[in-house]
């Protein structure tokens, strides 16, 4: 009896130390798990805050430096298709216009700065990055932009909304370029031919005025993965001097 009690007491004295070590390890592992979880929170939420604000500011700055567009609403048949004006290429990191996606109104930013370059210093600021070697807006060839889908501002999050016929508008200092989506494709990240002057046919001479948007996509995880790219192609419907009016697809949206 005495002996048993002694063992019992002995055990009782040792137990807290063992629980202490295990508890320490357990808390360490739990903390590690929480840190991994926080990393996901950081990536999906935190990384978007500052860039989204900066992108909005950049859009505001763009509009502050150009004449306001004429308010007259112009239907698609009022758009011009002749004498498409040239647009000067700009240097890396410079803003060449604003990308407007009416289908994304009230969802994510439907106006974002189009900035030259597709490196992280451009894309991670919630800009639409213009592939440097692709055509300027409205020109023959393939005006191509990239944007994040689910991080750094979620710019292109709702890319599946862009079904054939949806409008995508590029607004430069003087001109509206109205494109209509022709379709989309899902490709592996190495398929640079999607931004070729003739999409899918590198080396061919372009005879159409295309626009291409590229963003993340995963066959298994959708917007949360990065193993594929969601590619949207659109073709120029027409252009309009900003001094002559505002395309109806833009006028119907809320003011920025």
């Amino acid at each position: 009896m005495e002996h048993a009690t002694a063992v019992g007491r002995h055990g009782a004295r040792r137990a807290p130390a063992r629980i202490g070590v295990l508890g320490f390890l357990g808390e360490l592992l739990l903390t590690g798990g929480v840190v991994v979880g926080l990393f996901v929170v950081w990536q999906l939420w935190w990384t978007g805050l500052a860039p989204a604000a900066e992108a909005r500011e950049q859009v505001t700055r763009f509009y502050a430096h150009v004449e306001p567009a004429a308010p007259e609403v112009v239907e698609p048949d009022g758009l011009r298709t002749d004498d498409v004006p040239e647009v000067a290429q700009v240097g890396h990191g410079e803003t060449l216009g604003v990308l407007i996606v009416p289908a994304w109104a009230d969802k994510t930013q439907n106006r974002m700065p189009v900035v030259e370059g597709v490196t992280p210093d451009v894309l991670d600021r919630a800009f639409a990055g213009h592939y440097p070697d692709t055509a300027a807006p409205g020109q023959l060839g393939n005006f191509s932009v990239a944007g994040h889908r689910r991080s750094y501002g979620n710019n292109f999050l709702h890319v599946p909304d862009l079904e054939a016929g949806e409008a995508v508008v590029v607004e430069t200092a003087d001109t509206w370029f109205v494109y209509r989506v022709t379709g989309h494709e899902i490709v592996t990240p190495d398929r640079t031919d999607v931004v070729a002057p003739v999409p899918g046919k590198p080396g061919e001479e372009p005879d159409r005025r295309m626009l291409t948007m590229t963003t993340c996509h995963s066959l298994r995880y959708g917007a949360f993965g990065n193993d594929h790219r969601w590619i949207v192609h659109a073709e120029l419907e027409g252009w309009l001097p900003r001094s002559a009016g505002t395309p109806d697809v833009v006028a119907e949206m809320e003011a920025p």
Binding site: Q43, V118, T119, P120, L123, G129, Y131, A146, G147, H148, R149, R150, S151, F156, V187, T188, P189, D190, R191, T192, V194, V195, T214, T215, C216, G225, N226, R229, I231
Partner: peptide, 14 residues
């Protein structure tokens, strides 16, 4: 982090 959402990721330095 699913870095670049760009089609050129396979060939670019990023």
């Amino acid at each position: 982090v699913g870095r670049p959402d760009v089609a050129v990721s396979g060939t670019s330095s990023q």
